[in-house]
């Protein structure tokens, strides 16, 4: 059968438009650069194997959908790629640096500085306003309050939720809360955004709005997106897909 292979081959189609240096001054790398490479990951939780030889590559600026049925291991794969979960065996490298050899402190610094996260239920801090939530990752990076809140306000406006800046997460709708979470994920200009079922708690209309804004903003800034979903309509915002089945990955390319 043509078109089926272990991941790591075909180039992604979606790229940031300009290819030049972004306004934040970070080195974004070349569009085809392999940012994250996972090789033969195995991970079990007790006697239950979640990953059984999963491999994939994430390239700069691409939106990669990770598909698969419930329990297939796709969220565990995302957690391994993001350095949240350590694999039992196998290797994850980020721009050549081996995550599996890093200390917890190094991993934490990597996550804060290079990665952004969007989860199914937003996971905003309920005591903080939406503006403070978005500014939080910058504050953790020791950016001054005024500058952090200026950048946070800019991102809230970009995600079309500038009007909820002063509200707490409990006072906004699910769709608004997710857009605040997307703003929080992007405010530090990450190289990779990990999105785990980002629209799973939203209806179609609000889910599509979140996806359009998330992928649009990521493409504008040159961030790669690793999008875990079981919804085809959400995966349709990606450039390519990898399927996880029984803890193993398969990438798909349509036959020519």
């Amino acid at each position: 059968m043509t078109g089926i292979h272990a991941d790591g081959g075909a180039a992604a189609t979606g790229r940031r438009a300009d290819g030049g240096a972004p306004a934040d001054g970070h080195d974004r790398g070349s569009p085809a650069e392999e940012l994250l490479v996972a090789e033969e990951l195995h991970r079990a939780f007790g006697p239950t194997p979640a990953l059984a030889g999963a491999s994939l590559t994430v390239r700069a600026g691409e939106v990669l959908a990770v598909l698969g049925p419930s329990g297939s291991g796709k969220s565990t794969l995302l957690h391994c790629l993001a350095g949240i979960v350590r694999p039992d065996s196998g290797r994850v490298t980020y721009r050549g640096a081996d995550l599996t050899a890093m200390s917890d402190r190094e991993l934490s610094a990597l996550r804060r500085g290079q990665f952004g996260f969007v989860f199914q239920f937003g996971q905003l801090v309920p005591e903080l306003t939406c503006l403070e939530n978005v500014a939080l990752p910058l504050r953790l990076e020791r950016v001054g309050r005024r500058e952090a809140e200026r950048r946070a306000a800019e991102w809230l406006g970009r995600l079309e939720v500038g009007d909820v800046a002063g509200k707490r997460p409990g006072e906004v709708s699910g769709g608004q809360g997710q857009r605040v979470a997307v703003a929080r994920a992007l405010v530090t200009a990450p190289r990779v955004v990990f999105a785990d079922e980002p629209t799973g708690a939203l209806d179609s209309l609000h889910g599509e709005r979140v996806m359009r804004l998330l992928t649009g903003a990521a493409r504008d800034t040159g961030a790669a997106v690793v999008l875990v979903t079981h919804e085809a309509r959400v995966a349709a915002y990606s450039d390519r897909e990898v399927v996880v089945r029984d803890g193993r990955t398969r990438s798909l390319e349509p036959a020519a």
Partner: peptide
Amino acid sequence: DLLDTQRAEHLRLMRELT
């Protein structure tokens, strides 16, 4: 493999439509 190939083709069209 057949099902995976078909899924890729469906997603390709869904991307266009999106």
